[in-house]
Design a binder for these strands. Structure first.
Lengths: 197, 197
DNA sequence: GAGCAATGTTGACACCGTACACCAGAGTCG
DNA sequence: CGACTCTGGTGTACGGTGTCAACATTGCTC
């Protein structure tokens, strides 16, 4: 070993994930990461254009971790409605328990021309599937399916942000659990009850 | 003039507001701000403990600007329901049109012991008032008033974040306007329709 | 084995936040 | 009037950062 590290790129991402878990995105420094991996600062530039690129690479991993955590909370035998609940509550729970990773996971890379959204990230896809499942089971009128994902995501993501960086930051877990359920149920109620548009 | 500046503190905050409008919180640097005001970097430390303190002082101003913008969108003759809508849509509109200020306005200073939230910030108070008004007018059963603010704030704030930093960032304004109305109406529907809790 | 592309290293630059010691000016008191 | 002190500024310096340019080393291929 020594001069050529081998899997520097992977090693940097792995270390980044470790560091970001407690320190968030701000803790991902070129010098700090390369130091931890035992390599000179500039070595990283062979694998990442700049710091931002490294952060986004770590963010991609964090996004997968978020998706995994959400999937783990969906009971295979659950009803479509409960699956939708689990998606939302899983998102919120991950945000609360893995604050650093969550901060990364919701980082959006600005690629593509304005207007287009690339392939949807895995966590968002889980939400789309849950909504489609609800429609298929008759739990949500097909006519009301359009844009439902944005209502759900807004609420769940907003709650996650309030508990992560906002005024609910220091609330005790029990209260937050109850609030989370209430908030998720409220959007679902809004979606499924008989409004106009 | 010259050696003693006089209103350095106010001048720094004002300049900070100017800079942050386009650059967000990250643009608020000790050196940059003091340079713009024409003073040595360390002068700022007579008025702010550190950079964070300066940022929070500017954030407080931004919070007022947000509240003002929201108030400006509430028609005095509007129905309680429309007032609630205006509060949410005002919040979202401000986030979209004043991205830098918005980023500051939602910054929470971590004061106080865990569990307590200090006096509510002005924008949040507007939401509370709107909800109370809706209850008073019979538009919302008093039994369902509890925690309603968190459902509303989660949704509205989440949507604002999605359009500001998230996947809706590059969506065209017309689409966002429609989506915003839809999302706000969905939560309100969830609150007012006949659920359980 | 020679040449080459990939992947490291070293050194330097410009910038940042901030700690420490010092100085200018205004106000007060003997 | 002159000295004393308080407030709010200045200068210098330290350790940290991201990043560029030039150079060294290694493994792959002809």
């Amino acid at each position: 070993m020594s001069y050529h590290h081998g899997g520097l790129r992977a090693a940097l991402i792995a270390e980044g994930l470790r560091v970001a878990r407690t320190g968030g995105a701000a803790a991902l420094g070129m010098r700090e990461l390369t130091r931890a991996v035992g390599v000179s600062p500039n070595a990283a530039y062979r694998h990442f254009a700049d710091r931002q690129a490294l952060v986004l690479a770590v963010a991609l991993e964090a996004q997968d971790l978020l998706a995994d955590a959400m999937r783990a909370r969906i009971a295979p035998s659950a009803s479509p409605l409960d699956r939708l609940r689990a998606v939302g509550l899983g998102y919120i729970h991950f945000a609360r328990t893995e604050r650093g990773w969550f901060e990364l996971a919701i980082l959006t890379r600005d690629d593509g021309p304005p207007g287009t959204n690339g392939p949807f990230p895995a966590p968002f896809q889980l939400l789309l599937d849950a909504l489609d499942g609800l429609v298929a089971s008759g739990g949500l009128p097909a006519a009301r399916r359009a844009h439902a994902e944005w209502a759900c995501w807004s609420t769940v993501h907003g709650f996650a942000d309030l508990t992560t960086r906002g005024p609910l930051r220091r609330q005790d877990p029990a209260t937050l659990d109850a609030l989370a359920s209430y908030v998720v149920d409220t959007v679902i109620e809004g979606l499924t009850s008989g409004g106009s548009t």
